[in-house]
């Protein structure tokens, strides 16, 4: 029989196809991630001038900003994957959402930790109940809840259904929390480091290495999620094989 031509993105939602494709893809993504991270961080740490106000402490920006970006984007990715699971019931997307959660959580924790380390010399305090910081703390709680729910339910499909709905509801409440926190306390944190408005941006000399590190973090995230999704698929396959074993 002739292999059907790949015509739709959904073909990759087949676990087998996904494993085959990522077999080839993963090393490249991982390598690119490594190159971007090393270039971005070395460039940023050693080949940019100190800030006239903040001195060398500004250099933590090359970790802080990318990890903070990825913390939010990871949740967005989980939201999209959850929607795909709810609407089209492609199992790989449910497993990808599951795989992304711990990565997102770690990114959030890195952003919080680097923020605290940066905040100490700048604001004179490790922690302030600033809206951005507080939002990230709340985001951490959402990640914990999501991961805990996945871990608590034995049946894979049930867990996928429940966590998807939790992710949808959680996203709405996460946005609400963001506005609530903004309303509750106007803070110390500077505005966006990156935006389309040229004037608000950090200077070019910081900007370019920052972009490279962000690309590195994005690629790192993709590589980790692919890797973890493959692990989840194989774990699922093991369970399916065991179930078949029990039957015979």
């Amino acid at each position: 029989m002739k292999e059907p031509r790949v015509t739709s993105l959904w073909t990759y939602a087949n676990p087998k196809k996904f494993i085959e494709t990522t077999d080839k893809l993963l090393p490249w993504v991982a390598m690119l991630a490594l190159i971007c991270l090393v270039t971005g961080l070395i460039w940023g740490f050693f080949f940019t001038p100190d800030d006239y106000r903040q001195g060398a402490t500004v250099k933590i920006i090359y970790i802080h900003v990318p990890s903070a970006l990825m913390a939010i984007n990871a949740w967005l990715m989980m939201l999209v994957a959850s929607l795909v699971w709810i609407v089209r019931r492609h199992h790989v997307s449910a497993l990808a959402a599951r795989a992304a959660a711990p990565v997102g959580l770690v990114m959030t924790l890195i952003a919080l930790a680097t923020g605290a380390i940066w905040g100490q010399p700048m604001w004179g305090t490790w922690w302030a109940w600033d809206p951005r910081l507080t939002s990230f703390l709340v985001l951490t709680l959402f990640y914990f809840g999501y991961i805990a729910l996945w871990a608590a339910i034995e049946n894979d499909d049930t867990a996928a259904d429940l966590t998807s709905i939790l992710c949808l509801v959680g996203s709405v409440f996460a946005v609400l929390s963001r506005y609530a926190v903004n309303f509750w306390n106007q803070g110390l944190h500077q505005g966006a480091s990156l935006s389309l408005d040229e004037k608000e941006n950090v200077a070019d000399v910081f900007y370019h290495p920052l972009l490279v590190s962000i690309a590195g973090f994005v690629l790192l995230f993709i590589a980790l999620v692919l890797l973890r999704t493959r692990t989840e698929i194989r774990a699922r396959r093991t369970r399916a094989l065991l179930a078949r074993e029990r039957m015979n």
């Binding site: 709340v138 709680l141 959402f142 914990f144 809840g145 805990a148 729910l149 608590a152 939790l166 509801v169 959680g170 409440f173 996460a174 609400l176 929390s177 506005y179 609530a180 926190v181 309303f183 509750w184």
Partner: peptide, 17 residues
């Protein structure tokens, strides 16, 4: 315990306002 972990973050906006 899981119930508390899931519900408390959802309570944040209500509590704040």
């Amino acid at each position: 315990l899981l119930l508390s972990l899931l519900v408390l973050p959802l309570y944040v906006p209500t509590l704040i306002f």
